[in-house]
């Protein structure tokens, strides 16, 4: 139980996350984990952590913390203008801190989520093999909640591996425009051909109703054809659902496992990690692709990152 650091200011919403709980949706357990797992995994690779190590996910505005012992860390995801004792820091770069050093993050200008990972990983409440915080049921992390001032971060004491150099060309570039490739969903027929074409052609704006479970899409009201109410059916991160009122929403990593609204589209696996960086007001376009193209893009992205990301990352 080595204390790494104490939280001085928690930021807007900072939680402990790892890569979540895959394969448990049949028990009602959502995936959870880092909302932008690519940036998170690259930061872990930079500090020499295993892909399963937990770190901090910071939302829109990051925390301030004081180290309690010497330790190493790296940053990733949205740039929150981090400073260590007043010195500006780069993303995906390992840094060494001493006891009493202060790490201060600010607000992100682009992107929604920044990551701080510590060599050895963070300890959090284990729930079904993951320390990821799932706020709706208060699971994982520190008592299932977001961090508060005074919290102490504890090292998981995982054995470090070789630190990986992350080439600039592989660092995710985050802007205010998001192009998400998607396939029509199982109930896309409930939109009709014209409305489905409108979904794929008009630009959407991310609404204020945005959390780790989902994102409201604003900008058009889609006409949904009358249909009998749906029985609860499986949904996944990346599913776009559209209630009768016509305002669609995009499900993210904390999404519940079943839903009852028409599923009009499914974001391809290779583009899903981008969704974690969408902030309210950002622009989103959905581009229709074929299943074959989606698999090809996933294979290309996987080979692009090589062994920097764990196997099967873009499943």
């Amino acid at each position: 139980m080595t204390a790494i650091a104490e939280i001085l200011k928690p930021g807007l919403m900072t939680t402990i996350q790892d890569l979540g709980r895959p394969g448990l949706r049949h028990q009602g357990v959502p995936l959870s984990g880092a909302a932008d797992p690519v940036s998170f995994a690259l930061a872990n690779a930079a500090i020499g952590n295993k892909a399963t190590a937990a770190g901090l996910e910071c939302t829109l505005k990051g925390p301030s913390l004081r180290f309690k012992a010497s330790g190493s860390f790296a940053l990733g995801g949205a740039d929150m203008k981090a400073h260590l004792n007043g010195n500006a820091l780069q993303l995906y770069t390992p840094y060494d801190a001493q006891a009493d050093d202060e790490l201060v993050l600010g607000a992100a200008q682009t992107g929604a989520r920044g990551y701080i990972v510590f060599q050895g990983g963070l300890q959090g409440d284990d729930f079904l093999g993951s320390a990821s915080t799932y706020l709706p049921a208060k699971l994982g992390g520190i008592n299932g909640r977001m961090l508060a001032a005074g919290d102490t971060l504890i090292s998981a004491g995982m054995r470090p591996a070789a630190r990986r150099d992350i080439p600039t060309t592989l660092c995710p570039v985050i802007a205010h425009d998001f192009f998400l490739r998607a396939l029509p969903g199982p109930e896309s027929a409930q939109l009709g051909a014209t409305e489905l074409a409108r979904f794929f052609s008009c630009g959407w704006t991310a609404g204020r109703r945005a959390d780790r479970m989902g994102l409201q899409l604003e900008g058009a009201q889609l006409k949904v054809l009358d249909a009998p109410p749906m029985a609860s059916s499986p949904v996944f991160p990346g599913t776009v659902q559209c209630p009768a009122a016509g305002e669609p929403f995009l499900l993210l990593y904390d999404a519940q496992t079943v839903g009852g609204y028409p599923r009009i589209a499914q974001v391809i696996a290779a583009d899903l990690p981008l969704t974690g960086q969408i902030r309210p007001g950002d622009r989103i376009w959905f581009q229709e692709v074929s299943a074959d193209a989606a698999c090809e893009i996933a294979a290309q992205k996987a080979s692009f990152y090589g062994d920097l990301l764990p196997f099967g990352f873009f499943r």
Binding site: P22, G23, R25, H26, A231, S232, S233, P234, F236, T257, V258, A291, C295, A298, A299, A302, G312, R315
Partner: peptide, 21 residues
Amino acid sequence: TDAVAGVESIVLRFRPSEVTA
């Protein structure tokens, strides 16, 4: 990767790199 059922539907998800559609 996932075999999940609702009350009248089932979704099977797979790794396209390991199993063909």
